[in-house]
Amino acid sequence: MNKQLKIILAVTAVSAICGLILGAAYNQTREAIAEAERADFLAGLSEVLPPYDNDPDKDAREIKGTTVYEAKIKGKPSGYAAVFSSGKGYGGHIYVLVGMDAEGKVSGVAVLKHKETPGLGDKISGKDFLGVFKGLSEPGLIAVKKDGGIIDQFSGATMSPRAVADAVSRALEFMRDNFISEEKR
């Protein structure tokens, strides 16, 4: 048999076997992966939203290109959450999940993805820093003190907290504009 043909045959055979194995493995793990990813996201949602009894990731709607997750208790809206990002950080975009309760106050903040310096900028994902946002209702005041806001920057790193504050402020403003009626504001 031709030498080159032999090589092609061998590689094709091996690839075909591997393809079959991978197809089987993929089908077996697909649901578990989807579940793990969903559990991951739901854990984040439950951290930032007020108590709820629905599936906020299923009660999601698209408003002006932003997906908003709605939390409900017995069918009545109890809060909203959305992912906002800010490019003001030190190492690229920071993605923040922001929750708001039915009164238009921040109910919780979680950092989803960041590339800030470990040990310095990454303090933004710590509870001490993120707890500060809870209960705030004035988007204009959510900024680091250097920028005239009320959020404490920590020594050695201003940019990372600034980026988080920026994302939270815009998320809150967006959700208040869309869900909180005029008189309540």
Partner: peptide
């Protein structure tokens, strides 16, 4: 190809059970 196949299997199962 064989190595890539095993790597992908490990990758899939880790993603599913050690997310």
């Amino acid at each position: 190809v064989i190595i890539a196949c095993f790597v992908t299997v490990v990758d899939l199962y880790m993603n599913a059970y050690f997310h």
